[in-house]
Write a protein that binds this DNA or RNA. Structure first.
Lengths: 205, 205
DNA sequence: CACATACGGCTTGTATCTAAGCTGTATACG
DNA sequence: CGTATACAGCTTAGATACAAGCCGTATGTG
C-alpha cells in the first residue's frame, strides 16, 4: 500500500485511492490511519490526506534514533556482564550479514535488518526492540526509492558489521558504539544526507 | 476509550464494545487498531482482541527506553556545543517542574512531562521527540491505576529535576545522565518494579 | 470407542449508505 | 468596488449490511 508511488506533497482522498485500488474505502481508511501513525501521511479532518514529503533530514533523524537505541542495547548488555556482551558478539560474527558472499542480493536488506535486530533484541527490552523495528520499517520505506545496494557496497557493509561484532566479542562496548556510529554514518552518506551533528560529531566527512 | 476499565487478559470483540458504548463498530475498530499499535491490545484475526495484561516488566522497559532517548538527547546536545547544553540547563532550571510549590496537584503529571519533553525536543531530532511522547503516553496509561503522587514525593522529584538541570547548566553531560538515571530509577521504584538491570546497573537498591 | 466431518455460532473484514463538515465560488448587498 | 453570505462540491466520519473465516460441538462412520 502506497509503496513509494505517490511522490509527496500530494493531497489525496480515500475514495480516490479506493477507486484506483479497486477496493472499498474502509481498508484504505485503515491504511491511512496507520500511515499517519508512522508519519508518512498527515490527515486533515474533513479535508484530505497530505503525503508528507520525504524530508531529507528525516532519514538522518531515523539513523540517529537507531544509533541511540542500538547504543542503549550495547550499554545494557555491557552493564549486565561482559560475558553477555561477548556472547552476542560471537553470535553476530556468525551472522550472514558478516559474510555477504553467500547471500543473494534480494536478502541483503533482510539480512542487514536481522543483524541489527539481533543486537537490539539481545538487550532484552521489548519496548526498545519494538521501536527499533518500527524505525527500520520507516527507513526502508523512505529509502525504497533510492536503491543503494551495489555489490561494491555490500563488502563494506559486511566489513563494518564484522568490526562491530568483533568489538563486542572483545568486550569493548565503547569501541563497538563508535564503530556502529561509523556504520550508520556511512549509511547516511550513502543516502545523500551527509550526517552532520550526531552521527559524525567531531570532524569527519 | 478503554480508560483503564478492562483489567487485562480479557478477550473482547468489536461488537461487544460498540454495543456497550452505543456506537458503531467502525470507530471501535479504529480505536482497536490504534491501541494495538500502541501495544495495549493484541488482535487475533477473525478471533478477537486480547487486552495485553499490564506486565510489571513493561513499566521498567518503558523507563529504560525513556532513559535511552533522554541520554541520547543529552549526548547530542553535548556534541553540538557545551553552550547548547548550558542553555538547555538554564531553561530547565526555570521550568515549573523544578519548583513544585507553585503547582497544583492536577498539573503535576503535565509539568513533569513537559520538563522531560523539553530536554528531548531540544536535541532537535523530531523522530526521537515523537517516540518519547508516545512512550510517555504508554507509561501514563499503565500507571493510571497506581497513583503515586503524594505531596511528599513531589519535592523529591522536583529536586531530582533541579539536579539534572544543574548538571546540564554546568556543562557536565555524564553527571546529568547519571542523575537522570537515578531519577528514572526512583520512578521505577515508586511503581513497585525495582529497577534491576539498566536503571540501577551496579549495586544500588 | 476413536476419529473424521459437517454444522452452528461466534468473530473479523469489506462494502455501501447516510450524515455532517469544510472550502471555495458565486452572488447579493452596502 | 469591497464585504458578507448562501450554496455547491468535495471531503471525512459513522452506521449498517453483507461476506468470509475460525472454533467448538455434535454427529456420523469405521
Amino acid at each position: 500500500m502506497l509503496d513509494g508511488n505517490y511522490p509527496g506533497g500530494d493531497l489525496l482522498s480515500e475514495g480516490e485511492i479506493a477507486q484506483t485500488l479497486q477496493m472499498s474505502r474502509t481498508p484504505v481508511r485503515e491504511a491511512f490511519l496507520r500511515l499517519q501513525a508512522e508519519g508518512f501521511l498527515h490527515l486533515y479532518p474533513k479535508r484530505g490526506a497530505l503525503v508528507v514529503p520525504v524530508n531529507p533530514a528525516e532519514a538522518q533523524a531515523l539513523l540517529e534514533t537507531r544509533l541511540a537505541l542500538e547504543s542503549f542495547a550495547i550499554d545494557k548488555l555491557a552493564g549486565q556482564s561482559t560475558d553477555a556482551l561477548r556472547t552476542v558478539g560471537r553470535e553476530l560474527l556468525e551472522h550472514p550479514a558478516c559474510h555477504p558472499a553467500e547471500l543473494p542480493d534480494a536478502t541483503m536488506h533482510e539480512s542487514d535488518r536481522a543483524f541489527h535486530a539481533h543486537l537490539v533484541t539481545a538487550a532484552g527490552n521489548p519496548v526498545v526492540a519494538d521501536l527499533y523495528n518500527t524505525l527500520r520499517d520507516r527507513q526502508l520505506r523512505i529509502t525504497a526509492t533510492a536503491r543503494t545496494h551495489e555489490t561494491s557496497r555490500r563488502a563494506t557493509v559486511a566489513h563494518q558489521h564484522t568490526q562491530v561484532a568483533e568489538a563486542l566479542r572483545d568486550g569493548n562496548p565503547e569501541l563497538a558504539k563508535t564503530r556502529l556510529r561509523e556504520h550508520l554514518a556511512h549509511t547516511a552518506q550513502a543516502l545523500g544526507t551527509a550526517g552532520s551533528t550526531f552521527l559524525t560529531p567531531m570532524n569527519e566527512g
